[in-house]
């Protein structure tokens, strides 16, 4: 049986040379270069061979492809400082991760079901007439015979008729403004009994 000191000493001895830190995985370009290096230089295309052959016949020098342009060094001045740039990058990564997580959420039922529920609620809640009844209440009243429309239609007809008469012949009804005495024209004001329902039938 090992004592604690012996265990600690064994552990220290075992972990004296920690493993090398992991390096970043090679990029695609590095992988392609490594593969190309394994299989030797890239083969020339038929067009390249033909051009080289023609150039050799003419005694011209074989044109070498121009070297790839070197990447421009990043400007020292301008742009956010490195620590802010790091913060921005970290924030962007976190936002991207959040957006990915949100996109992965399930949406059972779909949007159509929710719109239907919302429209039903509005149908139940919003009052549509002067007495504060909703469409659901009106439908229930009509189905059970508790709501009739004839009275409302009669009241509406009377209101419209009274308004029209007051506009044409002010003062015909008690409580309405008297006709202006400064106006021109004359004629006899015909008193009309309330309620007056206009009719287009011939007398």
């Amino acid at each position: 049986m090992l004592t604690d000191e012996e265990k600690i000493a064994a552990y220290i001895e075992k972990n004296q040379n920690p493993p090398e830190p992991r390096t970043a995985p090679p990029t695609t370009e590095e992988q392609v270069e490594a593969k190309a290096g394994e299989k030797g230089p890239l083969k020339k295309s038929p067009l390249q061979k033909k051009e080289e052959k023609e150039a050799k016949e003419k005694g011209e020098e074989i044109p070498t492809p121009p070297p790839p342009p070197e990447p421009e060094p990043e400007p020292v001045v301008g742009g956010p400082p490195p620590f802010i740039q790091d913060s921005l990058t970290a924030a962007g990564n976190r936002a991207r991760a959040t957006a990915d997580w949100m996109s992965g959420l399930k949406t059972p039922g779909g949007v159509g079901f929710l719109v239907f529920v919302l429209v039903f609620f509005v149908w139940v809640v919003v009052p549509v007439n002067d007495t504060g009844q909703t469409r659901l209440q009106l439908l229930w009243g009509v189905l059970t015979g508790q709501v009739g429309f004839s009275q409302a239609i009669q009241q509406q007809r009377d209101t419209i008729a009274t308004g029209a008469i007051n506009q044409l012949l002010p003062g015909s009804f008690p409580g309405t403004p008297a006709p202006s005495t400064t106006g021109t024209g004359g004629g006899q004001i015909i008193p009309i009994e309330y309620p007056f329902v206009p009719s287009f039938e011939e007398f």
Partner: peptide
């Protein structure tokens, strides 16, 4: 789509 879906749930 997810945004609209959960926004409608919140509304309801």
């Amino acid at each position: 789509h997810v945004f609209i879906y959960y926004w409608l749930w919140l509304l309801i």
